[in-house]
Design a protein around this nucleic acid. Structure first.
Lengths: 234, 234
DNA sequence: TCGTGTAAAATGTCTAGACAAAATATCCAT
DNA sequence: ATGGATATTTTGTCTAGACATTTTACACGA
């Protein structure tokens, strides 16, 4: 924290964030900063490297280092474990398993068919309802590839939600989310809302080392859940 | 790319991502890796540092370096310029300005009142409709703090959407997004959908150096837009 | 005037070592 | 056995320099 390189780094960062060094402007050369701080070049270099990794600075050989211009708007959303979210709110949490079936993947007519998401031979289908403080909170439809997670067969998902179990047992390497709005439709009865009520639908495809692990579609009543994303440019 | 440290880094990373080194397991000490690669410790250290920054590895003094357990599910969503999105699809794009007004911020009864988002004295209110291929695509309600962006007064927003203009003219340092599902409500007429139709609502608060810059609420018909988020754990 | 080649400036990578800091392990005295 | 001092292991930071690489600027020649 109080190392010299982190001090240099935060000095530079505050000059940038404050606008004192506007986007596109050139910052002092490494040798100038070496003279200014009286340290070795590696130390300055390390500080700048961290800011480059954070996207705040761009370096060009011979030309120097420049404050990066903010480019694409990206935001980091956190899609946490539902059980954890609800516990944090101080509400009781329960998962009701509605359906459990083994099925050959070929039969599934799912919208889970995404390019590059080719499920193995057999799939575990799990439908359930997350309940918070006695009220339905999220309707979940999940497929687990049994080739990727064979232990799932011997797991009792009436006790733990499959999402929580997977988090702890199957590491993954890649996921893709799709967030849409739709009407509750047939899920409305289970969620105890009108069929026409607006819902937030989160679909997630998860891979491990290029192999599909699980697909999940979660339906949240629009007034009971929202995603919040923090965002810092560059 | 082909530097030694990046080679070491990708070696380690693939051992982790493949599962050969499972979460929680200890990786070789820096000195062992030095012996293995025949390089200086700084080089190994740099490679590991990058993986620590990426959240793939955790280091503990005396104990060693360990493969991190995946923790919170975070995803990076891109919230791009609407005009750019539509052009990429190859559709025509138009922005219709529906309302333009200057108002004292005090009057606003907005839900824009977020903790830490205290607008200045005067605000520019801009309501408009993004139109793609002749069909309404997004209904937008925006506030611009005139203290933060005085040039907005002299800008003609019938030509450019305020979002695009702000992107190019006012740098910002922080933003907060809220993504919810709701019914179209009164906006349904303008979007040419039923009042009860599900919509994706994106609200965004933007600051610059701690000062509010703009608030925007965008309403997308649920069937015409969805957010996609890519995600890699750790 | 217009290229073109060369020098210079800046970052990129790496070495071999030093000392610091933290956490664990060990040993000794009680 | 137990508590505390001490040693050891491992990462954390930093130095002072070397050479590579890339791009720009400039001088020079056609």
């Amino acid at each position: 924290m109080s190392s010299l390189d982190s001090r240099i780094r935060s000095d530079l960062e505050s000059k940038i964030r404050s606008g004192e060094w506007p986007p596109g402007s050139r910052i002092p050369t490494e040798l100038e900063l070496v003279a200014q701080y009286g340290c070795a070049r590696m130390t300055v270099h390390k500080a700048i490297t961290a800011l480059v990794a954070a996207g705040l600075i761009e370096r060009r050989k011979k030309a120097g280092s420049f404050v990066a211009r903010p480019h694409v708007q990206t935001a980091v959303i956190e899609i946490p474990d539902i059980a954890a979210v609800i516990s944090e709110r101080g509400e009781t949490y329960r998962f009701d398993l509605l359906r459990r079936a083994r099925a050959p993947a070929a039969i599934l007519d799912e919208a889970s068919n995404l390019a590059g998401f080719d499920l193995g031979d057999e799939v575990l289908v799990l439908d359930g309802l997350h309940v918070a403080a006695g009220r339905p909170f999220c309707l979940e439809h999940r497929l687990i590839d049994l080739a990727a997670a064979p232990q799932a067969v011997d797991t009792d998902f009436t006790a733990t939600a499959p999402g929580s179990w997977l988090l702890g047992h199957i590491p993954w390497s890649q996921a893709r989310h799709r967030i849409t709005a739709c009407s509750a439709g047939a899920g409305g009865e289970l969620l105890q809302i009108a069929r026409s009520a607006a819902c937030l639908q989160v679909e997630r495809w998860t891979w491990r080392a290029g192999q599909p692990v699980t697909f999940v579609r979660q339906l949240f009543p629009g007034d009971r859940y929202d995603l919040v994303a923090e965002f810092t440019p560059n």
